[in-house]
Nucleic acid binder design. Sequence first.
RNA 1: GUGGGCGUAGCUCAGCUGGUUAGAGCGCCAGGUUGUGGCCCUGGAGGUCGCCGGUUCGAUCCCGGUCGCUCACCCCA
Length: 425
Amino acid sequence: MPEFARLPGFRDFPPEELGLKSHILDAWRRVSRRYGFEEYDGPPLEPLELYVEKSGDEIVEQLYAFEDKGGRWVALRPEMTPSLARILAERARALPKPIRWFTAPQLFRYERQQRGRLREHFQWNVDIVGETDVAADAEVLAVAIDGLRELGLTSEDFRARVSHRGLLAALLGRCGVREEAVPAAFTAIDKLGRETGERTRARLAEIGLGREQLDEVLSLFEGADTVAIASRYGEDAAVARDLRSVTRCFELLDAMGLADYVQFDLTIVRGLAYYTGTVFELFDCRGELRAICGGGRYDRLLELVGGDPLPAVGFGMGDVVLAELLQERRLAPPYSRAVDYYIVTIGPAERPLALRIARRLRDRGHSVSYALADQSVKKQFSSANAEGARRVVILGPEEAAAGVVKVRDMASGGESTISLEELGG
RNA sequence: GUGGGCGUAGCUCAGCUGGUUAGAGCGCCAGGUUGUGGCCCUGGAGGUCGCCGGUUCGAUCCCGGUCGCUCACCCCA
């Protein structure tokens, strides 16, 4: 087979494959700009240190890292947020707040590939920096939702599940979970629904929860909505504060007409350590695919990377799972080629004139193709058809002598004779 | 990193419990004469049957290893 095979987990994008990816990235960019976000980018290769302490163990274990010829340890970027943090550390002070930035970089991870998870993908990142108000949380959620709506998906297809880490931590505290045990409890809760109830109970028991505490913790996730939580734990100041934030977030999304797309779900935790407040994930409604999108508020990260303290909220959405969902719902655009004109010459004598005509058409912005080698007229028409030509310009000795060309409309088959001046302007 | 399934032309797949020149459809290329596409007809190219080794008189078919793909686990950006 091929002597030079593709690296595992990497994709080729021949034209018929590139179409879907471009469709997705184009939609992302349109929606970003519609919300007033500006695009940025950074280097695909970064110093390894940028990730080793900020990104958490899982990411570091899966880094594509190596030593370069200058003896520097470098890594292909596995996520964009550290680069964003560095860029902002340099210039955030001079930027008007809030900062609305987006990007769609190609990211890399060294991990065995599986469905929806390759070693390389394109990830849409949208962030609002410099705004603590929960309106910013609602805003980025709306961008994520609109990104999917722009591609034809509806509330029948996907849903955003929204939670709040501060709220969950406060509730766990009320249930008797010690502060140092909260991260472990987060991990256990994150797995709710993905593994058996016994397994979760065992995990929670391991961190020192007694039977009653355990039952109370689990009851938090059994259909507990914001109203139920408020009535039961509302007297707790931290719970009340974060609950107000969550409630307001839903009110804002409702006002934006997106209530059908969001639901409160305390089991959403997210793996990354740096999230501080709102966290959310977008899933397909059938639950067949892994999360389409994940994000949240990370108010401490930018100062950890060496900048000023700056609150931030954002999300990442990958192209791989999304492409699968679009294909399943038959929302992927069909592959097609198209060219405005294909010039057919009857004989080699007409080629110079054909090239002059092509020049004029292209200068006016039309796309033009033609056979590069002399071929039969039949073959040229066949190629015109294969290339999706809307019109064919036919140029033979008779036309050349008369200073005209024949133009055939490929869809209707109708032909007309027009002068060279008329065609070339 | 762990485990399961798969690996035959560019693509989708056949190949009857191992037996001589490995097939089909689609795609591609060339024709169906002299200035016209999509349909149709004819022909052609293209495979060391992923790779290495073993069993056997003989292996695409059985066994082992390896690589790749894939699904799940782990974990999740």
